[in-house]
Amino acid sequence: MSTQTWNETRVRELHDDLVFLYDPVDRVAEHGADPTADPGEGVRQLVTTILSQNVADENTRRASEALFDRYDDFAAIEAADHDELKETIRVAGLPDQKAARIQRALTAIREETGGAYSLAFLDAMATNDAKAWLTDIKGVGPKTASVVLNFHFGKPTMAVDTHVERVSKRFGLVPESASNGRAHEVLDEQIPDELIYPLHVLLIRHGREHCSARGANCDNPVCEKYCNCEYC
């Protein structure tokens, strides 16, 4: 783990070095100019992110397609027979838990809005308050909440998946002993608001292409400058 002190200047240097290695991140190309234009899109992203917990992207895609092909709307998903719902999303893994989490989330949203399946109310809330509202739903952790808040609403909160956590710890951005919840807090404090989304994307790419969990390929200028892991 790097022993150098991290400050805003160094975080910006890391961003620039990752951009040099991988190219700039185009948020509009990935999420559209205004992802909040469809009130239901935030709910769909929350449901899909719950499906994605601890599973590969391909299985998330298959489960999401099966879910939205089978049920006409969010009301039908919330009212679905639990056993039927879990069989529909089984390919995503942990079907019993994820079915319950999805239905709890939809119930919480409907009750909060007085009947609508929309997360638009989160847009007006402070980031910490919006994250607290989401994580009050059993089964919605800080990563799931941060994905929805950052990707959909553009709020400054880092979604820390396994790649972001691993690379951040190897670079010394986050203490090696930090829990995933603490990693979210540290990165939200360390990273300038406008860099949270691009650094999220770039750290994931670096984790996939170079800084893998085992047998990392450290022969690149970013690892040479920032990392001191066992593979360097």
Rank of each mutant, 00 (worst) to 15 (best):
E87H: 07
A37Q: 09
T144Y: 01
T49I: 02
T88I: 04
A63W: 04
V91Q: 01
P198A: 06
E189K: 13
V160A: 03
L202M: 05
V19E: 14
G215V: 07
P35I: 09
L187N: 05
R27A: 15
L94M: 10
L173A: 07
L203D: 06
Y231W: 14
E224M: 04
F121S: 07
R205I: 00
R208E: 06
A216Y: 02
E78K: 13
S64D: 10
Y226N: 05
A63T: 04
T135E: 07
K225A: 14
N180C: 11
E185S: 15
T107C: 02
D34E: 11
L195M: 08
T5I: 09
S118F: 09
V47N: 01
T88M: 06
S177A: 15
A120M: 08
P192I: 05
R61N: 10
L106A: 03
P39D: 11
G32L: 08
I109A: 03
N7H: 14
G32W: 06
A92S: 12
G32H: 10
E41I: 01
C223K: 01
T162W: 01
R10A: 09
E112W: 03
E165H: 05
A216C: 07
V201I: 12
I204G: 07
V25P: 07
A124N: 13
F74I: 15
A75G: 15
V11P: 05
A213G: 10
T5E: 06
T49Y: 00
D193T: 13
S2R: 07
E112L: 04
T127F: 06
A37S: 14
M158L: 11
R61E: 14
C218N: 12
R90P: 02
M125Q: 15
I102S: 00
P156F: 02
R208V: 09
L149S: 02
N128A: 15
Y71R: 08
E8P: 02
A130Q: 09
A76R: 15
T144V: 11
K155G: 06
F121H: 09
A33D: 12
C211K: 11
P221V: 07
M125P: 07
L14Q: 11
V28F: 07
V186E: 13
D16F: 10
G154K: 01
H210S: 12
T88K: 02
D16M: 12
T135C: 08
E224W: 03
K131P: 01
E185I: 11
V201G: 00
F121C: 07
N220D: 15
T60Y: 11
Y117F: 15
T3A: 10
E30H: 08
D73N: 15
S64N: 09
L203S: 02
E13M: 14
V160D: 00
E41H: 14
I196P: 00
E65I: 04
L202P: 02
G93K: 03
V25A: 14
E209T: 12
I204P: 02
L134V: 01
L199I: 03
G207H: 07
V140K: 00
R208H: 12
T60I: 04
A132F: 04
A29G: 12
N150D: 09
P39C: 12
D26S: 12
P35L: 08
L195H: 09
L67A: 11
V28W: 04
A178R: 08
A63Q: 06
F151S: 03
